[in-house]
Amino acid sequence: MNSSIAALPVTTLASANEALTQRLPSALELKHQLPLSPFLTEQVNAHRQAIRAILNGEDSRLLIIVGPCSIHDPESAMEYARNLKKLANDVSDQMLLVIRAYVEKPRTTIGWKGLAYDPHLDGSDDMAAGLTLSRELMREMLRLGLPVATELLQPMAAGYFDDVLSWVAIGARTTESQIHREMASGLGMPVGFKNGTDGGVAIACDAMRSAAHPHRHFGVDSQGHPAIIQTPGNADTHLVLRGGHRGPNYDRQSVAQVKTDLAKSKVTTRIMIDCSHANSGKDPMRQPAVFNDVLEQRLQGDTSLIGMMLESHLFDGCQPLSPSMRYGVSVTDGCLGWDGTEQLLREAAARLRAQKTLGHA
């Protein structure tokens, strides 16, 4: 992989108190530099349709969004992707596995913001290289045959990746944002809105209703020019439960209340459970317990639970950024290692097969 598109020269504004600016390549320029072949474009469309079929109840498989909390090392990310592709083939009768390729990370105050922002992990914030590397990495994952997912945090960055993505998350802190709701209304793939950090779902319900409608809003076109963007509305949204300040919300009682709240808001009842974050108490090793609880609810007939999300990397845990980091270990939230992830998903697929076998007996 290379990072051959360079940013244009820095322009210093008149006042010392004002920000510096540095031009980036437009989304169109980067797409021309790293294009998708017609085959890969068709593959993305097929992946999006497969996810829509799960959301609409036309496909009984579980949708599983799984992969590193964030990508910081392309080599370990691709090793993970190759492992996931083999597993995806083996469980494809029961699950659709979609790889997390998260290259932007929200920060409460300050910190490393992700591969798209700081690909060299040194605070240099070479965003031109970061955008190039991120798109190149996603394209390599596509070439393996995997559907790709990410969280879109900065709307201006969305145009660099929108053609390679099959699923998008809008995070707990941005679900309330009008700008992100407008953006989601124009995306060509399914979008999962996370509940707010308080654990309530009212904000996410409003977001899904807003995103379903057409919008006209300020934006940037593919050539980087300010533009009026007119969106068609996005009917392929769903709720992602990630817990909140008051604790988890994946249990049966919480899910039942959420279903009631969605019905009152006239929002389609389709729910994904994020097994990490507040649902696991930020303990990555608790993710399997959350996953299995949700799986049991699904096995008992709750088809509103359309899937789960797992934070998973090659090895357990997390580590701070440093000059000597362990290979395949997250530098943001702690992750479940590959061995535990593979065992969890294979056992879940076996349970789903067994239930279908009994159902046909």
Score class of each variant (00 low, 15 high):
residue 25 P to T: 07
residue 26 S to W: 04
residue 26 S to T: 15
residue 27 A to L: 10
residue 28 L to W: 08
residue 29 E to M: 10
residue 30 L to G: 09
residue 32 H to A: 15
residue 32 H to G: 14
residue 34 L to I: 14
residue 36 L to P: 13
residue 37 S to Y: 06
residue 38 P to Y: 02
residue 40 L to W: 04
residue 42 E to K: 10
residue 42 E to C: 05
residue 43 Q to P: 02
residue 45 N to L: 14
residue 47 H to N: 13
residue 49 Q to F: 03
residue 52 R to L: 04
residue 52 R to V: 12
residue 54 I to E: 06
residue 54 I to C: 08
residue 55 L to I: 07
residue 55 L to A: 08
residue 56 N to V: 03
residue 56 N to R: 15
residue 56 N to P: 05
residue 57 G to W: 09
residue 58 E to T: 04
residue 58 E to G: 06
residue 60 S to T: 14
residue 60 S to W: 05
residue 61 R to G: 13
residue 64 I to M: 06
residue 65 I to V: 15
residue 66 V to A: 08
residue 69 C to R: 01
residue 71 I to V: 10
residue 72 H to K: 11
residue 72 H to E: 12
residue 73 D to R: 12
residue 73 D to V: 07
residue 74 P to T: 12
residue 74 P to Y: 07
residue 75 E to N: 11
residue 76 S to L: 05
residue 76 S to R: 05
residue 79 E to C: 12
residue 81 A to P: 03
residue 81 A to Y: 00
residue 82 R to E: 05
residue 84 L to V: 04
residue 84 L to K: 02
residue 85 K to R: 14
residue 86 K to Q: 05
residue 88 A to R: 00
residue 90 D to I: 02
residue 90 D to C: 03
residue 90 D to G: 01
residue 91 V to Y: 07
residue 92 S to T: 12
residue 93 D to G: 13
residue 94 Q to T: 09
residue 95 M to S: 02
residue 95 M to P: 02
residue 100 R to N: 03
residue 100 R to P: 01
residue 100 R to D: 01
residue 102 Y to K: 11
residue 102 Y to N: 10
residue 103 V to Y: 14
residue 103 V to W: 05
residue 104 E to H: 04
residue 107 R to N: 04
residue 107 R to Y: 06
residue 108 T to M: 12
residue 108 T to Y: 08
residue 108 T to H: 07
residue 109 T to S: 15
residue 109 T to P: 13
residue 113 K to Q: 12
residue 115 L to C: 13
residue 116 A to W: 05
residue 117 Y to S: 11
residue 117 Y to L: 04
residue 118 D to M: 06
residue 121 L to K: 11
residue 122 D to P: 09
residue 122 D to M: 05
residue 124 S to Y: 15
residue 126 D to C: 09
residue 128 A to D: 12
residue 128 A to R: 13
residue 128 A to W: 05
residue 129 A to L: 07
residue 130 G to W: 09
residue 131 L to T: 06
residue 132 T to G: 12
residue 132 T to R: 07
residue 132 T to L: 04
residue 133 L to V: 02
residue 133 L to P: 02
residue 133 L to H: 03
residue 134 S to W: 10
residue 135 R to E: 03
residue 135 R to M: 04
residue 136 E to W: 15
residue 137 L to V: 00
residue 139 R to L: 08
residue 139 R to M: 04
residue 140 E to H: 02
residue 141 M to Q: 10
residue 142 L to F: 07
residue 146 L to Y: 01
residue 146 L to A: 02
residue 147 P to E: 08
residue 148 V to L: 11
